[in-house]
């Protein structure tokens, strides 16, 4: 099979791969081109060619949510998305939340409320909690619990994560990011 073929104008779909193809990915407002095989997941593209290792891969099956990033502002498991299918959608990772040295309110609240132990689930947790705050003013503890229902934390930080996010919501008065 050819490495890359384009549509011939007769309705034949463009085919990429199985070898590496060039992809333009917009991550944290910066568009970069990477070479990737169709089988490369977004999580692998972020951690590999893009060097953004804040996003973690744990289960690699969408079952733990450690790899959570935003696609057009919506939390998704980046391990279950093919990089080749991201297209024009904007990717936001944990590296894109802080403004310079100023932490996102959820990040600051995680520090203040000791919501981190080993830290492996934390980037994903923060992405889900920050997405919640972007859409929900002053979320309740139940709303935070629902927002993080896909996340597994072996250290058991859940109560601190919920307290931190409720506190961050109370402080930001519902202003979006």
């Amino acid at each position: 099979m050819a490495q890359s073929r384009n549509a011939d104008g007769n309705g034949v779909p463009p085919v990429g791969g199985p070898g590496a193809v060039s992809l333009a990915l917009t991550v944290n407002d910066i568009t970069r081109t990477v070479r990737a095989e169709p089988r490369l997941t977004l999580a692998e593209a972020l951690r590999g060619p893009l060097g953004l290792t804040g996003t973690k891969i744990a289960c690699d099956r969408g079952a733990c949510s450690a790899c959570t990033v935003w696609l057009d502002g919506v939390p998704v498991c980046s391990c279950m998305i093919l990089a080749i299918e991201v297209g024009q959608r904007r990717v936001t990772t944990i590296e894109g939340l802080a403004e310079g040295e100023r932490l996102h309110p959820v990040q600051a609240a995680f520090v203040a409320h000791d919501a981190v132990q080993c830290g492996f689930c934390t980037p994903g947790m923060v992405m889900s909690c920050a997405a919640l705050l972007a859409h929900t003013k002053q979320p309740s503890a139940d709303a935070v619990t629902a927002a993080i229902s896909g996340h597994l934390c072996r250290c058991g930080t859940y109560p601190h994560v919920i307290a931190a996010t409720v506190a961050a919501g109370a402080e930001t008065k519902g202003d979006g990011p």
Binding site: M1, A7, G11, V12, P13, P14, V15, G16, G17, P18, G19, E37, P38, R39, L82, I84, E85
Partner: peptide, 14 residues
């Protein structure tokens, strides 16, 4: 995962 090609279909019939 094994290596595979990916086709972006334009229509249902495609």
């Amino acid at each position: 995962m094994n290596r595979f090609a990916l086709a972006h279909a334009r229509t249902i019939a495609d």
